[in-house]
């Protein structure tokens, strides 16, 4: 997965989403990534059955951010027993929307020549952080003031021994943009913005104290239910 500042947003290693024993021998591992402005579901399909698998197709249930396959699942040849194939499925974010619980839950159906199988997985919210998420400074100040205090959520990111420059670069490669930085009484205050694919803006204040490995993250958003997931994205990005 891309981790460094030049290689795009962070992608977790693939994990097993559908074990073979629950899908008549078809094992699916996967992860989500954002590359060059496109969201991908990166999949590894393994045939652990005794027969050849063919005629693959994939479909998503409606979900909170309208994620949907942007192309058919391209598996060009039948999958022989013990064979594995890597597939990168581009996703669009203009599919049907239905609020899921948790918000980032995705229900997936996969079919092959044997049967139809279902699994669900959770996607990290940072795959939805768009490249033009740097808010104008004046707009940031006005929006920060305008969003009521009840919509502010505060989190602690523990054991993060990075300085503010390294943090800024890491976050920027996942489309979290620093708009201003101030040093007050020895602590760095970073003011940041990000925008989700559905147009929701999130404003952030990240406090970093030189002697304290725990960061304080304050998030302001008109849709506060995303804040918990944005915090998890910060954790993931800063610690990988």
């Amino acid at each position: 997965g891309g981790v460094g500042p030049m290689s795009g947003s962070y992608a977790a290693p693939k994990s097993v989403w559908m074990p073979a024993m629950k899908a008549k021998g078809l094992e699916i591992s996967g992860t989500f990534a954002r590359r060059m402005g496109t969201v991908y579901m990166d999949l590894l399909l393994t045939n652990k059955a005794l027969q050849v698998m063919s005629d693959f197709a994939i479909q998503f249930n409606r979900n909170s951010f309208g994620l949907a396959p942007a192309a058919p699942l391209q598996i060009h040849a039948p999958l022989a027993p013990n064979q594995t194939v890597d597939v990168s499925l581009p996703l669009s974010t203009v599919g049907s929307v239905m609020k899921m619980d948790p918000l980032n839950n995705l229900q997936v159906a996969v079919k092959n020549n044997i049967d139809v199988f279902y699994f669900s997985t959770l996607y990290p919210l940072h795959i939805l952080f768009v490249e033009d998420g740097k808010m104008d400074r004046q707009m940031f100040l006005a929006t920060w003031k305008d969003i009521p205090n009840e919509n502010e959520a505060q989190f602690h990111i523990k054991d993060c021994p990075l300085n503010s420059d390294v943090s800024t670069n890491k976050l920027q490669s996942s489309n979290i943009f620093t708009i201003a930085k101030r040093n007050v009484e020895g602590q760095d205050m970073l003011y940041q913005s990000l925008k989700l694919t559905n147009g929701i803006w999130v404003l952030a204040e990240l406090r970093i104290q030189p002697s304290n490995p725990s960061y304080t993250l304050s998030l302001k958003c008109r849709a506060p239910e995303v804040s918990q997931h944005v915090y998890q994205a910060y954790e993931t990005i800063l610690k990988n």
Binding site: R137, Q138, L141, W144, A180, R182, V184, E185, Q187, M189, Y191, E205, S218
Partner: peptide
């Protein structure tokens, strides 16, 4: 450099958040 007052506004915001 054009002083649009925003630099000062961010300083005030950071200050107010540290010493409310």
């Amino acid at each position: 450099e054009l002083d649009d007052g925003l630099d000062e506004a961010f300083s005030r915001l950071a200050e107010s958040r540290t010493n409310p």
